[in-house]
């Protein structure tokens, strides 16, 4: 038996928003520790890794490990039926071929349940080696979304260049060229507005704009985003999810032919 209760179901709505542009379907692996998802996009260029710890939920029970293959368009239809303040309970029997979503209004006067068929997915798990990154940039997630959106008007690729002075995002194309430089913030009142850089070595890498823009669909999950870069390895874009865990996106770089 699997059962997870979430008082504010808006978190799950935001998670779904953050993955559905990259993935059509995904397997949610449920265990005693929580819910995990790891899936590559169809083109095998980016990977989504989601971790929601069991202790973040208001109630969590998972007697046996359970892998739920879910069509994300179907799940989106169901989650649209929930109010942001509804209390969500997800339930599944062991070895079930369906999962139930129950939404209760705060005053408990309205209770809805939706039963969704699970699908069988061929799981392809990737081993992600521990990496010491040359540059770790923390910045406001809204600012990162804005930069990705603005630069995608100029070219298909964004060059991210990090030194100890700051980080530069550049794009170039038919219109011309664009450069956005962010310096480390000296003093900020709010931690979430800070730009901080931990640098071992300067790094410059090129990435496809389209994927960066898809990652920014997670902006609502966290006020800050963390970018981890090393030469010739995938970029990691991480958004913390409150008391639950995180969503990480890995994106392979573009290299000179």
């Amino acid at each position: 038996m699997f059962e997870a209760r979430l008082v504010q179901c808006s978190m799950l709505k935001k998670v779904l928003e953050a993955i559905k542009e990259l993935l059509n379907e995904a397997t949610f692996d449920c265990s005693d520790a929580g819910i995990q998802l790891q899936a590559m996009d169809n083109s095998h260029v980016s990977l989504v890794s989601l971790n929601l710890r069991s202790d973040g939920f208001d109630k969590y029970r998972c007697d046996r490990n359970l892998s739920m293959g879910i069509n994300l368009a179907s799940m989106t239809k169901i989650m649209k039926c929930a109010g942001n303040d509804d209390v969500l309970t997800i339930k599944a029997q062991d070895n079930a071929d369906n999962v139930m979503f129950m939404f209760e209004s705060q005053n408990q006067e309205k209770v809805s349940d939706y039963d969704m068929k699970l699908i069988n997915l061929d799981q392809e798990h990737l081993g992600i080696p521990e990496t010491d990154y040359s540059c770790i940039i923390k910045m406001p997630s809204g600012e990162f979304a804005r930069i990705c959106r603005d630069l995608s008007q100029f070219g298909e690729s964004v060059v991210i260049s990090c030194t100890k002075e700051g980080v530069k995002f550049s794009a170039a194309g038919d219109v011309g060229a664009a450069n956005i430089k962010l310096a480390q913030t000296a003093n900020v009142d709010k931690e979430e507005e800070a730009v901080t850089i931990e640098m071992q070595e300067p790094v410059t890498l090129t990435f496809a704009c389209r994927y960066l823009n898809s990652f920014t669909k997670a902006t609502a999950l966290s006020p800050q985003v963390q970018l981890s870069m090393s030469a010739d390895v995938p970029l990691v874009v991480e958004y913390k999810i409150g008391d639950f865990g995180h969503i990480r996106y890995y994106l392979a770089p573009k290299i000179e032919e």
């Binding site: 590559m40 095998h44 260029v45 980016s46 990977l47 392809e124 798990h125 990737l126 081993g127 992600i128 080696p129 690729s157 090129t206 496809a208 390895v233 995938p234 890995y250 392979a252 770089p253 573009k254 290299i255 000179e256 032919e257």
Partner: peptide, 14 residues
């Protein structure tokens, strides 16, 4: 010209 790398080149299938 830039070539898009694939993730499988960096990570292992397990």
């Amino acid at each position: 010209m830039l070539r898009q790398c694939l993730l499988t080149g960096f990570f292992m299938n397990i």
